[in-house]
Amino acid sequence: MNAINDGRYMLLLWRAIGMLMNPPGPTPDTLTHLRGVVRPALDCARLVLSEENRHTAGVGIDYALDADQGLNVAAALDHARFTVGPQASELLERSSARARDSYGNIVYPADELGFDNGADNTEWDQNIFSVFTLFLGAGIPSFEQDYTFAGFLFTDSNACRVYIRSTRSRLTYGIDLPLVRPDGGPFKGYAYLPSELAPLVRTGDIDSHRVEGAEDEYCTAVADLRAWLGPAKPVQP
């Protein structure tokens, strides 16, 4: 069980790192920031949010790693961002008598703040962030002998064009990834995409998916892989 919890914790830590980046433009002092991700016990992960960028006393949210079916990392991150984040200042003000950790953070069990481990994430940003980190990999990605990740550009609110460069031909392809399912939920069919693209590029079969007449100054050709990716079906609970 400890090894399983270790994996869940590392996944939470890996995905939460993206929350450290502020959006472009001026950042209000009142914006809630991620102060840290720590592990107070083998079966618990704690996300700490601070109400300003000085990273002083904040709100710690404890998530059970060994919850039923394991911690739903996507649900935990959305809960921290969209449920706890907007009320971090209020929680600090009304909770002065609660226990604090050694860094002055007030600690709450996630359930007390309305966390639902069975909830589906409502935004697509976690999914596209995850596939980008898979494309970049740790060390040398297993698919680098076939292609490398060459960039991305959001083409509208529902699609992102990913650019990959063939290692052999040195040609760059643009591939459109859907962000939203027909029912409005986030598309989630990317878990194995980086490795699945490798044989398509290696064999040259990606050229059979070229979109004739499509122009893009950032790539040699645009490949339509919508049928290859499969229909964007809702995820079954």
Rank of each mutant, 00 (worst) to 15 (best):
residue 2 N to D: 15
residue 94 R to F: 04
residue 195 S to Q: 14
residue 66 D to K: 08
residue 71 L to K: 02
residue 146 D to P: 00
residue 1 M to S: 15
residue 34 L to Y: 04
residue 20 L to E: 13
residue 229 L to Q: 13
residue 3 A to W: 10
residue 193 L to D: 04
residue 68 D to S: 08
residue 52 E to G: 12
residue 151 G to C: 08
residue 230 G to T: 06
residue 153 L to A: 13
residue 1 M to Y: 06
residue 195 S to W: 06
residue 161 R to K: 13
residue 230 G to W: 04
residue 200 L to G: 00
residue 80 A to L: 03
residue 72 N to E: 02
residue 195 S to Y: 07
residue 58 G to M: 06
residue 161 R to Q: 13
residue 24 P to T: 09
residue 232 A to P: 10
residue 222 V to R: 11
residue 127 N to L: 08
residue 205 D to H: 11
residue 146 D to K: 09
residue 211 V to D: 04
residue 118 G to N: 13
residue 37 V to T: 03
residue 223 A to C: 15
residue 1 M to E: 15
residue 47 L to R: 09
residue 42 L to P: 10
residue 134 L to D: 13
residue 211 V to W: 02
residue 41 A to N: 12
residue 40 P to R: 07
residue 194 P to L: 13
residue 105 N to L: 10
residue 127 N to H: 15
residue 145 Q to V: 10
residue 199 P to E: 11
residue 32 T to M: 07
residue 172 T to F: 01
residue 184 G to Y: 13
residue 170 R to Q: 12
residue 117 N to Y: 00
residue 58 G to D: 09
residue 32 T to A: 09
residue 18 G to Y: 04
residue 69 Q to K: 13
residue 147 Y to T: 01
residue 12 L to K: 06
residue 86 P to F: 11
residue 167 T to M: 04
residue 202 R to M: 11
residue 180 V to D: 01
residue 192 Y to E: 15
residue 24 P to M: 07
residue 208 S to E: 11
residue 170 R to E: 14
residue 73 V to A: 10
residue 199 P to W: 07
residue 211 V to N: 02
residue 129 F to T: 08
residue 141 P to T: 07
residue 196 E to Y: 08
residue 157 S to Y: 08
residue 213 G to F: 07
residue 146 D to N: 10
residue 23 P to K: 07
residue 62 D to P: 05
residue 215 E to W: 06
residue 64 A to F: 03
residue 165 R to A: 14
residue 176 D to W: 00
residue 82 F to N: 11
residue 22 N to I: 01
residue 46 R to F: 05
residue 90 E to Q: 12
residue 36 G to S: 15
residue 141 P to L: 07
residue 73 V to D: 08
residue 116 D to W: 00
residue 138 A to K: 14
residue 132 F to E: 13
residue 93 E to S: 14
residue 55 H to W: 08
residue 28 P to R: 04
residue 34 L to W: 06
residue 172 T to V: 12
residue 57 A to D: 11
residue 38 V to S: 14
residue 64 A to L: 15
residue 9 Y to C: 02
residue 58 G to P: 12
residue 236 Q to H: 12
residue 160 C to K: 03
residue 175 I to P: 01
residue 71 L to Q: 03
residue 146 D to W: 12
residue 115 F to P: 01
residue 224 D to C: 09
residue 75 A to E: 01
residue 121 N to D: 12
residue 173 Y to I: 02
residue 170 R to K: 15
residue 228 W to T: 04
residue 139 G to Q: 06
residue 117 N to R: 03
residue 99 A to C: 01
residue 14 W to Y: 12
residue 77 L to R: 05
residue 20 L to A: 10
residue 42 L to S: 14
residue 50 S to M: 06
residue 104 G to D: 03
residue 125 D to Q: 08
residue 32 T to C: 13
residue 31 L to K: 15
residue 190 Y to W: 15
residue 110 A to T: 05
residue 176 D to V: 14
residue 166 S to V: 01
residue 39 R to V: 09
residue 180 V to C: 06
residue 197 L to N: 04
residue 10 M to A: 15
residue 48 V to F: 02
residue 232 A to Q: 11
residue 23 P to A: 12
residue 232 A to L: 02
residue 10 M to S: 14
residue 204 G to N: 06
residue 82 F to E: 10
residue 214 A to P: 05
residue 68 D to Y: 03
residue 41 A to P: 12
residue 14 W to I: 02
residue 62 D to I: 00
residue 176 D to H: 10
residue 172 T to E: 09
residue 234 P to F: 03
residue 104 G to L: 07
residue 42 L to M: 11
residue 197 L to H: 10
residue 134 L to G: 00
residue 35 R to F: 06
residue 149 F to Q: 02
residue 60 G to T: 05
